[in-house]
Simulated scan of single mutants.
Amino acid sequence: MRVVYRAIAVAAGVVVLGAGATVVLLNRDDPAATAAAPPPHSAAVVVPSAAPASSGAAAPAAGAVATPGLSPLSSALSSPVASTGASATPGTTASAASSPAAGADAVDPALAAALKDPRVPALPKNSRRLRSLPGRAAATHGLVKDRRSGIALPRFTKTWALAKPAPFASRQLLPKVKGASYRGMLVSCPVPIPEQKTLRDTAFLAARWTLNHHPSGATITWTASQPFKAGKREGWLLGYTVHYTLKGKKRVSAAALALVDVPEKKPAVVFVTIPDSQKKRWHDINKVMSSVKAL
């Protein structure tokens, strides 16, 4: 009997194993079993409104969480960095970036300083001719030929006297006036200041330089500013009144400067100044300015 019972138990175990195998084989190709499987975990949340890859927008970095409703393209447009890829500089506008380089038309430092000098006002915008000054011109005899400067000017006789030219190239002086430390002077030389882009600006700068040869604290007011011809050469003429104080009294001098374009040389300067203590000689200024010639 014991042997019979063992046979029955073995047979029952075989039946149970066969039934389990049948269930496994039947479920392996069942679609419903596959659908019930849980989805794998994703590392990023897909943005529903994200632009397709064909739009050219850059894909989000791996692992980044995109903002729902904001596409990569709209993120780029709202960025402070330009969409061209160039880095934006704080405080720099597009108009500043497209403007010409600073200093393209920069003013010469010497001219810039002169324009800020309160002793020397800006030149008149329109040409102003030299007026006829009072008096009668002194007699002349020929010309003083200043070959160093490439210029010729009248040689006054009697009242004016030739003097040692240094530091100029030529110099004529009126006699000293009793009790006065300042007298009339007529000089010529190559322009002693930086040459500018125009004869007008160079003449302006040269007129400022002439204040070195007037009493301290002198200032200028313009009486003339005009282009002129020195023979066949172009030039610029300035007339001005110099104001200053001597021994507590306000005084003036009449002055003029001619700047002449000289071939293969620096422009030449002819400068004349006569104080009011010698105003009988003021008309000599007209004589000088009308007689200047390039050699």
Rank of each mutant, 00 (worst) to 15 (best):
F228C: 03
S98Y: 09
T210K: 05
V81K: 15
A51I: 09
S181K: 11
R119T: 01
P68C: 00
V45Y: 14
F168L: 09
Y240Q: 10
R171T: 08
S83E: 06
K176I: 12
P60W: 03
S290C: 09
A44R: 08
P167F: 02
P90F: 13
G248C: 07
T93W: 10
M289Y: 01
H41C: 05
L162R: 13
V10F: 11
V16S: 14
S71M: 02
Q226I: 02
P31V: 06
V107D: 05
F168N: 10
V4Q: 15
A32Y: 10
G150A: 06
V292T: 07
C189K: 04
K176A: 15
P40L: 08
Y5T: 15
A50D: 12
A112R: 02
V252T: 15
A110D: 04
P190K: 07
R28E: 12
P215H: 02
S87G: 13
R171K: 09
A258F: 08
L111W: 03
V23Y: 14
T93E: 05
P263Q: 00
V23L: 14
E264A: 02
A294S: 09
M1D: 13
K125M: 03
A61Q: 09
P31E: 05
V242I: 08
V24H: 13
A44S: 14
S74V: 12
S99Q: 06
F228I: 00
L174S: 09
A106W: 07
A9W: 15
A61K: 05
A43N: 15
I285M: 06
V107T: 09
G69N: 01
G69Q: 00
N27L: 01
S127N: 13
L237M: 11
I274K: 00
W160T: 03
R233I: 01
T93M: 01
R119Q: 02
P124R: 03
A110Q: 07
A122V: 02
A43H: 15
G69Y: 01
A114H: 03
L25Y: 14
N27H: 10
R183Q: 11
A7E: 15
A180I: 00
H141I: 01
A254D: 12
V269P: 07
L173E: 11
P109R: 00
A33S: 15
H41W: 09
P60T: 00
S291F: 07
T140D: 07
K280F: 05
A137R: 05
P192W: 01
L246C: 02
A97F: 11
P175K: 15
A114Q: 03
P154L: 03
A50I: 04
S98W: 09
S291D: 05
G179M: 06
S79R: 08
V270K: 00
A138K: 05
S98P: 05
A36W: 06
T221S: 13
L133P: 06
A33L: 08
L111T: 00
H214N: 05
L238G: 10
P175R: 13
A104F: 07
A94G: 11
V270A: 01
G150K: 05
S79W: 14
G179T: 02
D276E: 12
D284M: 01
L174G: 09
A106Q: 02
G91M: 06
N126K: 11
A112V: 01
V23D: 11
E195D: 08
K250F: 01
K249G: 07
P38G: 04
A50V: 08
